[in-house]
Amino acid sequence: MLSIKNLHVSVGDKPILKGINLEIKPGEIHAIMGPNGSGKSTLSHILSGKSGYTVTDGSATYQGKDLLDMAPEIRAREGVFLAFQYPVEIPGVSNVYLLKAALNSIRKHHGQSEVDAMDFLTLVKGKVRLLDMDEKFLYRAVNEGFSGGEKKRNEILQMAILEPKLCILDETDSGLDIDALKIVSEGVNSLRSPDRSFVMVTHYQRLLDYIKPDFVHVLAHGQIVKSGGPELALELEEKGYSWLEDAEASA
């Protein structure tokens, strides 16, 4: 699905990622954990194509193609979905309009015709119910005036409708109360499938209580300093990040 090899990324002259290696196979869930400033967000941004970063070395290959060479919208149409840490408010563009534009872009990209209006509404309304959202959300401007929880739920709604192959969740748990966290997690869990992979970038263990990862990687100072199974997250919660950072410093 995704193969990251020796990835080096800078912002301006400042190196942020210093040689990331990561193999993600279809159906797997990988959690990327790490303290603030470790490069977690940079990793999700570089994978989704945000500008302002320079790749100085290494590669990221997605389904056999050079991911870093694609425009952000092409990545999205190829099935890469970034759930934003801070979803952007877009006044004047309704949710349903954006969903339709997005879905039709994907269909066009794959040589399919535009979605039928009735089929589209049936699909969207079904997903809205799944996420326990009010249908009125569809006709409101994208994220405008939404609470933190509503914004995150809206991200998952988009994901549910666009059916991506690779989902990158950037700090999805930040700003969520426990009820919203449960709903968002249930939404994500319902999307788990043998041919869909997830990368969850998070600071805290609590999201992993609800979405069980297959692998946990700890990012510190721009490198993956430790990888393991779900038990690693528990160990981190107990001990904090400092023991790994110390270990790295003495290595």
Partner: peptide
């Protein structure tokens, strides 16, 4: 906002 829309499949 432009990047957000791009990440939702919309070209620039």
């Amino acid at each position: 906002s432009i990047f957000y829309l791009q990440s939702r499949c919309v070209d620039e």
